[in-house]
């Protein structure tokens, strides 16, 4: 019988993987922004990857490593397809809200409406936005004139 007590490092790696997995799960279940949901799913994948590598370390085997490589590949595929879906969903509803699709609910069930949200106390940060492809960008003549240099 060849029993090897897991090294403390391996145990710690498994623990970190578990934490990441649980965090990702919470995010996936709770967050409503489709993209954040995806980020959380990726976080879960990271937790899995960590566990795999830890086990690989324990067993002295390449299997975990190889599997993580495939996880990376599948994650790339998933991201490619899923992001396209997210874009399509956004094109239809104008929102990245997973609850925007609750018209798929059973007939005669009441619609779930967000309760009244308090006004945001701080001005939310502005991030750069990309113009959707094929649509002429809205040009602000005054803003152009005010720019000192390009």
């Amino acid at each position: 019988m060849n029993v090897v007590t897991p090294a403390p490092l391996v145990v710690d790696g498994l623990l970190v993987g578990a934490i990441l997995f649980a965090l990702g799960l919470v995010g996936l279940l709770a967050r409503r922004n489709l993209i954040v949901m995806f980020l959380c799913a990726e976080l879960m994948l990271q937790g899995i990857s960590l566990s795999l590598v830890a086990w690989s370390r324990h067993h002295g085997d390449w299997g975990g490593h190889v599997l993580v490589i495939f996880v990376l590949t599948v994650a790339a595929c998933e991201a490619a397809v899923a992001l396209v879906f997210v874009l399509q969903a956004f094109a239809r509803t104008g929102r990245l809200d997973s609850a925007a699709w609750q018209s798929l609910r059973e007939a005669n069930l009441p619609r779930i409406v967000d309760r009244e949200l308090p006004a945001t106390d701080a001005v939310p940060p502005r991030f750069p936005r990309l113009t959707p492809a094929g649509v002429a960008p809205a040009t602000d003549e005054d803003a152009l004139l005010e720019r000192e240099q390009v």
């Binding site: 799960l25 996936l28 279940l29 709770a30 409503r32 949901m37 997973s98 609850a99 699709w101 609750q102 018209s103 798929l104 609910r105 059973e106 069930l109 779930i112």
Partner: peptide
Amino acid sequence: VRHLQSGIVQRYALAGV
């Protein structure tokens, strides 16, 4: 049981979890 089918996918996922 149909009240479970709320149209919000995350609730389904939650139930699964």
